[in-house]
């Protein structure tokens, strides 16, 4: 299978990102030396279980880390420009203009006291050089684009007058209205029903394709990743475990963690009495084992896995952070 390689500079580029949280018991490192790129028109899925650091990495990109959490090292580049060193004010402007954000709970992104039309036009007027009447027209167009029936009437409704799925559409319209080059969607469908989730995923894919927006889709749901993402980054205990095209990583994982994760989904075990299970649990951030963080749960652990430093994905190349990846030559 051939991947068309995108030669232009990626929209978002994260290099060796490390996030630290100093606590009185020592420094916790929820994101540890993570690197990945998102290209224009591409959806990068970031998966991991709770505590893997996937949301924390997303928050670092949009500059919304809660103190005392902070970026300890590494670089975040948006369209080739460093954004992790920007002052707060500039970062806030950038967040509305260049980066759109969709969170799990649509109510956190919408002001309950303002009509949604006003929230959309306000964002557009702040970032785009257009007249208020033009902004209103565009607001209605944006609502139509995300599939809200009767957009011209509903533009003057308040957030509470929409259902959960419709609210998430409004949030997507809001994230898109300033025409950002990057969208960060953090568990955008987790709170929604299956049928509504399918609608939202289809919407995200269409917008990404039509507008060439880069999307970072953070979720714990492997099925959503499989259907929506072009490439996938699997995180474990703050580190990147495996990254690559979604077909390769999900269908033929070479990191034992990805393999275990895929195997433990009920779909993968159809017809079996028991589900495949990974023993143990993800280590807490203050009790990471030496070497590879996955070695205590890994069926293929050898001596070198226990020694520091653990395996890393080399910058820009490589697929899995593993000394003994699963050989797929006979499978493929």
């Amino acid at each position: 299978m051939k991947q068309t390689h995108i030669m232009t500079t990626p929209i978002l580029s994260i290099r060796n990102l490390t996030v630290d949280i100093p606590t009185r018991h020592g420094v916790l490192r929820p994101v540890n030396g993570v690197s990945y790129d998102v290209a224009a028109g591409e959806i990068l899925g970031v998966v991991g279980e709770s505590g893997a650091g996937k949301s924390m990495a997303g928050n670092a990109v949009i500059g919304l880390l809660n103190p005392p959490a902070h970026i300890a090292s590494g670089e975040i580049l948006l369209n080739g420009q460093r954004i992790d060193t920007l002052p707060r004010d500039e970062m806030r402007r950038l967040r509305g203009k260049q980066i759109g954000v969709v969170f799990q709970d649509p109510l956190t992104s919408l002001n309950p006291l303002l009509r949604i039309g006003d929230q959309l036009t306000e964002t557009m007027l702040a970032h785009l050089d257009i007249s208020p009447s033009e902004a209103r027209k565009r607001a209605i167009a944006a609502l139509e684009e995300v599939g809200i029936p009767g957009a011209a009437q509903r533009v003057d409704s308040y957030p509470h007058e929409f259902s959960g799925g419709m609210r998430q559409r409004v949030v997507i319209a809001l994230a898109l209205c300033a025409e950002p080059s990057l969208i960060i969607a953090d568990e955008p469908t987790t709170a929604l029903d299956v049928s509504v989730q399918a609608q939202i995923i289809a919407l995200l894919k269409r917008l990404c394709r039509e507008r060439g927006t880069a999307v970072m889709l953070i979720t714990h749901d492997m099925g959503v990743i499989a259907e929506a993402a072009d490439r996938v980054a699997v995180m474990y205990a703050g580190q990147l475990a495996e990254i690559g095209p979604v077909r390769e990583v999900l269908a033929a994982p070479i990191h034992p963690y990805t393999d275990g994760l895929m195997g433990s989904t009920p779909l993968a075990s159809r017809g079996k009495d028991r589900l495949h299970q990974i023993p143990g649990a993800m280590p807490r951030l203050d009790a990471l084992p030496p070497g590879c963080a996955f070695h205590p749960r890994c069926p293929y652990t050898q001596d070198d896995c226990r020694a520091d430093p653990g395996p890393r994905i080399e910058d820009g190349a490589g697929r899995a952070a593993c000394f003994h990846p699963i050989s797929r030559t006979e499978v493929a």
Binding site: I21, T23, H25, L28, P30, S50, G51, A52, G53, K54, S55, M56, N66, A69, R284, L285, D286, A287
Partner: peptide
């Protein structure tokens, strides 16, 4: 901060 795990009491004490 959803992802942060608080320090376990048993390790400290």
């Amino acid at each position: 901060m959803v992802d942060m795990r608080l320090p376990p009491e048993e390790l400290v004490t």
